[in-house]
Every structure is written in structure tokens, then in C-alpha cells.
Design a protein around this nucleic acid. Structure first.
Lengths: 194, 194
DNA sequence: CCACCGCTAGGACGATTGACCTAGATTGTC
DNA sequence: GACAATCTAGGTCAATCGTCCTAGCGGTGG
């Protein structure tokens, strides 16, 4: 809390609003109200809306990296660490049913807007992918680790989309159980199986 | 072609623009330019933007039903019919890499906008789900048919999200191959396996 | 020939958007 | 305590949004 407390607050609230309402649909005024400052004050901290988006993506990259680091400490085994990832779907089920996955929906929106920051947003996925690949490699899957990581990411994204489309909590639990079964089928298998 | 050729043209172009640019980001002016008519002329056919959205969703519902009906004719076996669904990912890979899945991204956006039409948009998913469930039931999966249908829908949605995030065509082919292997593991199995 | 009606064009509306400016308040430093 | 840098508030800007109105076009029926 050395200097930029207001700036951080702006990024934090903008992060939430971008998630819950989308980037395009969230206006300067919306963020200003959420933070509790005037619209004019905004321009002192961020010159453009894209600058806020950049800061939000940076924040998400940093927090994701921190979360993955924390999971390394909590879960001692690779399997437990991967389960930490899978269980985001359960832990955040309420918000996911309402707004989908923060990363997936942002990437989708930025892709449609043909926004230059889309590739940076996709790097949040890469953090998960690389981290998961390390865990799969520790499970004994050498060559297939990256592919398994992408598949797990894919599966969870699908669950997020369908869960928000139907707002079905039971569906999330069913699919998560399926992912866990799939995970336990992966360990040390020589023949690839999806 | 009895009467409403202009109206149909509006809905058709709006459908494309909503897919490629998103509902919120597409303005009346954008659609008018795409159709080649004046903005004022718009109001004669659609009083509100939501009315256009309704018409677009109706169009998608109708066209989806027609496509599923056509697949019944093309693919004689349930497996071939399901493969027709899976191969949308390959056939439409270019657009999917650029804009994601039309249904999934629309549902996600409407969810964030808290738009009343979200549940109607989700009915497009239901058309696929019910149709797929019929095919899985024909494969000998009685009780698990609906669950398998939802899983296949989930998987394909995940592929669409990740494919657009990374714009990776090889990834699509890899996952589609995985889906096909999964499909062939399903037929007539008594013990559920994901 | 005229009255009518579906369709079109183009402008105008109030509101809101992202962006920007300026003046005052606050803070920190010497 | 004076000064400079930083932060804040509130207003203004042109552009664009969805919405709406009206005048004119073209064909059809009486």
C-alpha cells in the first residue's frame, strides 16, 4: 500500500465488472460508481479503456500465477494438485453458472471484438496449461502431458459454458465426477485413452 | 418468397453480425449497412433490437432443427449421425477459430447481459442435446443417453472456446480424434466410462 | 384517376459512450 | 510555511447508441 491504492481499487472493481457484465458493456461510469470516485478522476489513472483492460489482464495473470503457486504447496502429489484445478468448477460454481469462466468468456469476447489484447488474455490459459502439463509429467506422462493439460482445460471450459447456459448445478457435479474418473485413468498409462 | 424478403435478409445478416461481432457490439447502423437499406427503414420491420435478437434466435432454432433432420437422412446409423455432429468442429473450423461457437458465445454474452432471451438461446443447445440423446439411446445406452449427449455437447463447446483462444487448427483435429475414440468406446457399454 | 397502404429514406430525439480539460484539494519536501 | 507534484471532482466534447417521426415512393383496388 505504498502509493497506488485507488488505482488498484479501480483494477479490482473493473476486473469484477468485466467478468460479470463483459468488457464492452462495462462503461467508465459503471466502474467509477463501483469504486466510488468521479468519472473525471479516472483519466488520471487510466488514459484509455484499453489501458484498464491491460491492467485487468495483468492482474489476472499475476493472481493466477499466485494461485497455481499456492496449489503446489497445498497439494503434495500431482494428482492432488490437478484436483485443485478441477475443483475450481465446484468452488466457483455459483459465479460460473451466472457468468461462465472469467478467462474463457473474456477470450471469446475479445476475439469477436477483434481486440489486440486477446492474445494476452489467452496467456492466462497458458499459465494453467503449462502448470497442468508439469503435473501430468510428474504423473508419468511424458509425451502426452501437454495434450492432457489442454484436454483438461478444454473439458473444464465446456463445463463452464454449458453450466452457464443451463444454470445447472447438478450438471457441474456430474461432469466434475467424470473428470476425476478420467484423471485416475491417466496415471502412468502407456496407451493413450481419452 | 411470398412477401418478407427484406425482413428475412435483415435477420440473415444480423445473424452473421451477431455471431462475428457479438450482439451488443452490433448496432442498427451495422446491420443496415450490411443489408444495404437505411436505418430508418429498420424500424418498419423491427421495433426494437431485442425483436431482431428474437428473430435471429428463431432462425437459428429453425435451421438447427432442419440440419438435425437432414443428418437423420444422411447418416443411416446412430454412430454416423453423431459423427455428423462432431464434424461441425472440423467443417466450421475457420469460423470457430475466429469467433467460437455461435450458440455458446451467444448464450455466454446474453448471460452476462442478464438478457431475458438467454433461456431461448439455450434451447438451441437443447435441440442438439435431445437429438444426440436419441442417437445414444439407439446405440444401446438407455439411462445414460442424456448424460452422454450433454457430455458430447460439453466437450465440443470446450473445443470451440480453446480453439478460438489459441486459433489452433491442429488442436481441433486432435480433440475431434479424441471425441471419435470416446464415441466408439460408448456403444453398448454397460459400465459407464468417461 | 384517385385514394390507399406497404415500404423506404433520411433526419432528429435524448441518452450514453470514451475521451479530455481545468480548477481546486491534498500531500510530501525542503 | 511555501512550493511543487499528485490526486480529485465535475463539466464538456464529439460521436454513437437505440428509438422514433415524417415525407415521399410505388403498386393495387375501386
Amino acid at each position: 500500500m505504498t502509493v497506488p491504492v485507488t488505482r488498484d481499487l479501480i483494477v479490482e472493481r473493473a476486473d469484477d465488472l468485466f467478468y460479470e457484465g463483459g468488457f464492452e458493456a462495462t462503461s467508465f461510469a459503471d466502474i467509477a460508481v463501483a469504486v466510488g470516485i468521479s468519472r473525471g478522476n479516472f483519466y488520471h489513472h487510466f488514459k484509455t479503456k484499453d489501458a484498464i483492460l491491460d491492467a485487468v489482464i495483468s492482474r489476472r495473470l499475476r493472481r493466477t500465477a499466485e494461485m497455481l503457486e499456492a496449489w503446489k504447496a497445498e497439494g503434495s502429489t500431482p494428482r492432488e494438485r490437478i484436483l485443485s484445478f478441477i475443483h475450481i468448477l465446484v468452488v466457483n460454481r455459483t459465479k460460473i453458472m451466472a457468468f461462465g469462466c472469467p478467462v474463457g468468456t473474456l477470450c471469446s469476447e475479445l476475439a469477436k471484438l477483434d481486440h489486440g489484447a486477446q492474445s494476452r488474455a489467452a496467456k492466462i490459459f497458458s499459465l494453467f496449461r503449462d502448470w497442468l502439463a508439469v503435473q501430468f509429467r510428474a504423473l508419468g506422462l511424458e509425451d502426452e502431458a501437454e495434450e492432457r493439460a489442454m484436454h483438461l482445460l478444454t473439458w473444464s471450459q465446456g463445463v463452464a459454458v454449458m453450466a452457464s447456459a443451463y444454470r445447472d448445478e447438478a450438471f457441474i457435479h456430474r461432469e466434475v465426477a467424470g473428470i476425476e474418473r478420467w484423471l485416475d485413468d491417466q496415471s502412468g498409462m502407456s496407451i493413450p485413452q481419452n
